[in-house]
Amino acid sequence: MVPLSWYIILSAVVFSIGVIGFLTRRNLIMTFMSIELMLNSVNISFVAFSHYLQSMRGQIIVFFVIAVAAAETAIGLAIIIAYYKNNPTIKVDEINLLKG
């Protein structure tokens, strides 16, 4: 039998990889993909919990996470396109409109 903690550790590791991707990549689209990766890693742990606790809740939450992730991607990519129209760059370290 596979212990629950293995799944959680896997999830943590994949999440951290997502964090690294988010923090280091210069390409805005790659940052986005890193976010998707993080969401997926969390989903793994939810499904694992759901299985081991014999509860449906985890799977339901994953369902909602996927729905929200889809919405988030659509909006995020639309923002990228809208931004790209004005400033033709998607380099993260050149986008600093929020600078105070």
């Binding site: 988010f22 923090l23 280091t24 805005l28 940052t31 993260v92 370290d93 986008i95 600093n96 409109l97 929020l98 600078k99 105070g100």
Partner: peptide, 8 residues
């Protein structure tokens, strides 16, 4: 000053 405006 700490508001660099950079996402990362």
């Amino acid at each position: 000053k700490i508001q660099t405006g950079l996402l990362s």
